[in-house]
């Protein structure tokens, strides 16, 4: 069953340099229990999509298209109803565990506040729920640490608290925006294993936003690759890695340094990221694409069979 449906989403920002086209015509569906990855480099619009779903875009944003969650249109939903939906049904895990917790509030209050607000729970009940969820994310000695402040925890532990906060109302959809980017690899492995376990136990859908293809490979069923605010390719994860159909996906996969192979020269993607102050008229990747033909610079490629590229897969080198 479709839980989330994003159709023709466009996000533009009014800035001093003119209109910035951050997200251009992005569409995708997410089923209940699905794990979908949004992969892209900085400026690809991946975080803005998550913020748009949560209704948290900056004031200077212009948005059109449709975001439907469980048959409700989130873009036209009144603020009160949107507030009721946040945390209870859709939760967001931010990248930086340091700045997404209030430094003046104890962990107990911070976690408890969510259930008090959304479910009208009493203080005592909120405390019980906070303890449960802290145990679920395996914070050692949770009972004695309820009264602790965020600064008393390490980065990995803080990210666990942020995940606990997202889980406390058992939402149906978790948006995880670079949840492990600020963490060391050994801690990253712990957090991803935890997310995976929770996802399996609760059947939650997870939209994982990341730039790290390694994390995607180990976690997600399906992968969507973004560039310049457009979907370049969308396919089941194994297909993306085994037979990337878009030159950008292929370039990205080849550019990742792998520990198993040392002395080969990395194949870098030449050029710089796109300037997004003009509305896209052609494939945004064409200026950097080694396989580009003149037609690539003329007209937007249609998104067909899981990819937005005018050249057939067989022709690409």
């Amino acid at each position: 069953m479709t839980l989330l449906s994003v159709q023709n989403l466009r996000i533009r920002f009014r800035t001093g340099d003119g209109l910035v086209h951050a997200v251009n015509d992005v569409s995708f569906d997410m089923a209940e229990g699905q794990k979908l990855a949004l992969v892209g480099e900085s400026g690809s619009g991946k975080s803005q999509i998550a913020l748009a779903i949560m209704g948290l875009l900056a004031k200077n944003a212009e948005i059109d298209g449709q975001i439907r969650f469980d048959e409700r249109d989130l873009l036209t939903l009144p603020a009160a109803q949107m507030n009721a939906l946040r945390a209870a049904q859709i939760a967001l895990i931010f990248q930086d565990p340091m700045s997404s917790l209030n430094p003046y509030m104890t962990i107990e209050r911070q976690l408890g506040e969510v259930v008090e607000l959304h479910e009208g729970a009493s203080r005592a009940e909120a405390r019980k729920r906070a303890l449960e969820v802290m145990d679920a994310v395996r914070i050692p000695d949770a009972r004695n640490r309820l009264r602790a402040y965020p600064h008393e925890f390490s980065g990995g532990m803080r990210q666990r608290i942020v995940i606990a906060m997202a889980l406390i109302c058992r939402p149906r959809l978790i948006l995880a925006d670079e949840p492990t980017t600020a963490l060391d690899v050994t801690v990253q492995a712990q957090i991803m294993a935890l997310l995976d376990e929770i996802q399996r136990d609760m059947g939650t859908s997870v939209l994982l936003i990341t730039h790290d293809l390694g994390v995607v490979a180990g976690f997600c069923d399906d992968t969507m690759v973004l560039y310049g605010g457009r979907v370049m390719e969308a396919a089941p994860t194994p297909a993306i890695f085994d037979a990337p159909g878009h030159p950008y996906t292929r370039g990205l996969l080849r550019a990742v340094p792998r520990i198993t192979e040392g002395d080969v020269t990395l194949s870098a993607i030449p050029g710089s990221p796109p300037n997004q102050t003009a509305a896209p008229r052609a494939c945004p990747f064409a200026p950097r694409c080694v396989d580009a033909i003149p037609a690539c610079h003329d007209g937007l490629p249609e998104f067909r069979e899981g990819r937005a590229c005018i050249r057939p897969v067989e022709e690409l080198t």
Binding site: V185, T186, Q188, A189, Q190, M192, A193, D212, L213, G214, V215, V216, A217, G218, T237, P238, F241, L253, V256, R258, I259, T260
Partner: peptide
């Protein structure tokens, strides 16, 4: 440390040493 480095290959079932 090495076991925790994510491998960009979905067929490799990683067992990071926690």
């Amino acid at each position: 440390l090495l076991s925790a480095v994510p491998v960009p290959d979905p067929r490799v079932k990683q067992q990071p040493q926690i």
